[in-house]
């Protein structure tokens, strides 16, 4: 790893509002430390823009440690940039070379309309979860935590699925803008746990219906979502969703 500072050309999507058509704009950013995170690099750019009285670039971010799922960005055509199992906030500038041109676009999907610049509206995900991604248990109704034993291996499968951070990279990377990886992660988590079994039929039918209503595409099994997922959710969960769906479609009352 070199300590040499980078001079970069940034090609960034600027869009004033949801109705604006938007366009790319180029910015020169010099003297970027390779130890900076990608978002810190954008912070520095914004300071530079403010100093020259240009409006800073709006981008979503919050925890900056890879768990909140708020950061996004299509970096050189890849969701969350070139690294696997990494969110944009965890990506560091040492991954780039001096003189690079970096293109930065928002997530693009009909279900994720652009709010401004690189910020998109992902509330479709909330509505999908609201359509069945839960266990209907009111506060105070719970039996003892150990009342139902759950084998460690089952719990591990559930946890693998539950690790989803809801960032939307799966949708952004999918050529069909499909949300199947996101939806299947929740369906799968609940389908393997005994607590989630009771509502499995209504859950999968409800969530798939809402997913369609939001305008996400269908799954062509390209596995691009899996490669883009910072939480490394496997397409195995999509298969489980499909099983759950087929079962529910044939047996729902």
């Amino acid at each position: 790893m070199s300590d040499e500072h980078l001079n970069l050309t940034l090609r960034i999507w600027r869009q004033d509002g949801p109705e604006d058509r938007g366009a790319f704009r180029n910015y020169q950013l010099d003297n970027v430390s390779p130890h900076m995170s990608f978002l810190e690099m954008l912070d520095v750019l914004n300071e530079q823009l403010i100093a020259s009285s240009e409006e800073p670039v709006e981008f979503d971010h919050d925890c900056r440690e890879g768990i909140c799922g708020m950061c996004s960005l299509m970096i050189n055509g890849q969701a969350h940039g070139p690294d696997r199992a990494t969110t944009t906030c965890q990506l560091h500038m040492r991954r780039f070379n001096n003189g690079d041109t970096i293109s930065i676009e928002p997530w693009r999907a009909t279900a994720f309309p652009v709010v401004r610049d690189l910020v998109v509206d992902r509330s479709a995900f909330d509505r999908v979860i609201g359509s069945g991604g839960y266990v209907s248990v009111n506060t105070g109704n719970a039996p003892d935590g150990n009342a139902i034993p759950i084998p460690g291996t089952t719990q591990e499968v559930a946890m693998d699925a539950a690790a989803c951070i809801g960032c939307g990279a799966c949708v952004a990377a999918c050529k069909n803008a499909s949300a199947m990886l996101f939806v299947s992660a929740k369906v799968s988590q609940m389908a393997v746990l005994p607590q989630g079994r009771t509502e499995r039929t209504e859950r999968v039918l409800g969530m798939v219906a809402q997913m369609d209503k939001e305008g996400f595409g269908s799954c062509t099994n390209t596995s691009e979502c899996e490669a883009a997922c910072p939480a490394e959710i496997s397409v195995e969960h999509i298969a489980r969703l499909n099983r759950e769906y087929a079962r529910a479609a044939l047996t729902a009352r």
Binding site: Y134, G145, P149, A158, M190
Partner: peptide, 22 residues
Amino acid sequence: NNIIDQCVAQGVPFAREYGGTL
């Protein structure tokens, strides 16, 4: 203690022993 019970019932995948207990 009630919190743990409530969260388990919600489907929170707490780590478990191989025998299935928390």
